[in-house]
Design a protein around this nucleic acid. Structure first.
Lengths: 130, 130
DNA sequence: TGTAATTCCTACTAAAATAGTATAGAATAT
DNA sequence: ATATTCTATACTATTTTAGTAGGAATTACA
């Protein structure tokens, strides 16, 4: 399981919203400050919004807020909302990715590895990193 | 932890050598057959050789063989020999990869995730997939 | 001694993924 | 009205991945 910058920033964003839970909408520019691309973070927020993990409000005083208590978010659902592929290896989802002739004995390993990773991330809650 | 095709093929190669343990040197062309690039597998075998996991012999009747019993190889050491970066996220090894201003609370998660992945792969032995 | 089979070495390249950037539009509080 | 904020889509530069290519060095064997 490789975590891209999208996943990392999504988690940072959720942490920020979690810390301000109950305080109304928080804008992207407040979250990123000047040191990071607002545009990129907007895109990430859009993905979380589409996945139903956060709620948006447009206009002045607008922004994003959590839709449930921080303790109810698993890190898995947050990362899964923005990452394209959480599997440790492509061929788990795409058989054509493998050309070797000998019978592949490694699939079960990748499956099991993925299960372990997913369990860890499902057990970890947003509150664990606030 | 993302497994690249290099890692996957390295493991396939080790499985083949493991099945033929004690039978002398096995050539790359025997392992790959006609359906896969001999050149690419040569490169992978070279990495495993440099890491000391296998032993090579040149010339006619040459090839590669394991240097210890298949039960003594963990999947971790095999993958680690060919993968550039086993960490789940770049910034664990490269602080410059992160530009966001707010204090990062996610590092411990990636570290812990990596430890879990590594433990799983260290406990799994080559014999488990022969 | 010649030849075929094999590893070894280094450079190159095409395709895909990643990490953003850019532009314009829509909604809303004041 | 206006400034602020999200929304949508297209574009681009960089990095990574997954090989390919050519040839040199080594060795068994006829």
């Amino acid at each position: 399981m490789r975590i891209s910058s999208k996943g990392k920033y999504a988690l940072e964003l959720m942490v920020y919203l979690g810390r301000n839970y109950g305080k109304g909408s928080i804008s992207i520019s407040e979250i990123t400050g000047d040191s990071f691309s607002i545009k990129y973070m907007e895109k990430i927020a859009g993905l979380l919004n589409k996945a139903g993990l956060i709620k948006s409000e447009r206009g002045v005083e607008g922004g994003y807020k959590l839709v449930k208590d921080p303790s109810e978010y698993s890190l898995f659902e947050i990362l899964n909302a923005v990452e394209d592929n959480m599997a440790p290896i492509k061929c788990v989802l795409d058989d054509d990715a493998c050309k070797i002739k000998i019978t592949c004995k490694t699939y079960p390993i990748w499956d099991e590895l993925y299960e372990i990773e997913a369990k860890f991330l499902k057990d970890k809650k947003l509150t664990d990193i606030l």
